[in-house]
Amino acid sequence: MLTEIFKGLSITLRELFKPPVTIQYPEIKRPVRQRFRGRHELRRYADGLERCIGCALCAAACPADAIYVEPAENTDAERYSPGERYAKTYEINMLRCIFCGYCEDACPTDAIVLTDVYELAADKRRDLIYTKDMLILPPPSGKPGTPQQVAEGSYPRSILPEGLVSEP
């Protein structure tokens, strides 16, 4: 019986000298996996135009009805995105979103992507409805934001042919 006690305690002794596994979370953050899906962001083209064309396919694909898109017409004097329309309102309710990534799959212009931000806590429900201003990335350095004034007829299509606008 005595040998069993020492056998058991030897495990305790062995574990005592191992480094602790605890991650000191608020100070040290564990890197997430490569395909982790967290908070969304709306991307832009290299010339500063928004990728989102307001087609609302993401809203249609969303199983939780978390996305609300309200499109509006683009003009060449005030251009937000290539093609006819842009998203005037783009809201995602983070408390409905289940981070499945279907919106990412549905998007024809790769405008919406899921990032690795997971710290989504607030003391009001309203603060967790993310608007377009909170989701959209800033324009690339040295490029103007939106709306832009462009030459007439320079963006006839919503989905650009390869090479017309360089990738960010």
Partner: peptide, 15 residues
């Protein structure tokens, strides 16, 4: 406090 996530990671809960 509301914590978003489906489910939230343990870090998100701690946050």
């Amino acid at each position: 406090v509301y914590v978003a996530g489906c489910p939230p990671r343990p870090e998100a809960l701690i946050d």
